[in-house]
């Protein structure tokens, strides 16, 4: 009988494989906060904007995922952009318009929009 630790190692390797096949190694990873509090603050709409951008506008090389609450209640909804080799950037109080602008300016053109960044 295989040992439980070996079984879990195999499972982890499979899991990592699955995440990578979903595009995790893309140059940009975007996380939208989706806990009850974030949803109440409007994160579902924000998520929708990013989803559409990935699907329709052919935004390539972006890995989009939801995440739980990181604890910044007063700044929700939050969106996080992680690029390999750079410091992660977190935007607070994102709405539909801001999301669209983040896509245009940051994701497409690599410009960090300083005034919305959570420090």
């Amino acid at each position: 009988m295989a040992k439980a630790l070996d079984v879990i190692k195999k499972k982890r390797a499979e899991a990592v494989g699955k995440i990578i096949s979903k595009g995790y190694l893309s140059t940009k990873r975007v996380y939208v906060g989706m806990a009850t509090c974030e949803i109440a603050a409007g994160s579902e709409e924000v998520m929708e904007v990013f989803r559409d951008a990935v699907k329709q506008k052919g935004l390539t090389d972006v890995y989009l995922s939801q995440k739980g609450c990181a604890g910044r209640c007063n700044l929700e909804p939050t969106v996080e952009v992680i690029e390999q080799g750079k410091n992660p950037v977190r935007y607070g109080q994102v709405d539909k318009q801001k999301a669209a602008e983040i896509i245009e300016r940051h994701i497409k053109n690599g410009e960090v929009i300083e005034e919305w960044v959570i420090d």
Partner: peptide, 22 residues
Amino acid sequence: CGIIDPDSIDDYLALRGYEALA
């Protein structure tokens, strides 16, 4: 919290999830 996709067991497993159980 705030790191992984809570709907994905793969995310949890990738961060050494269920290794304590094993």
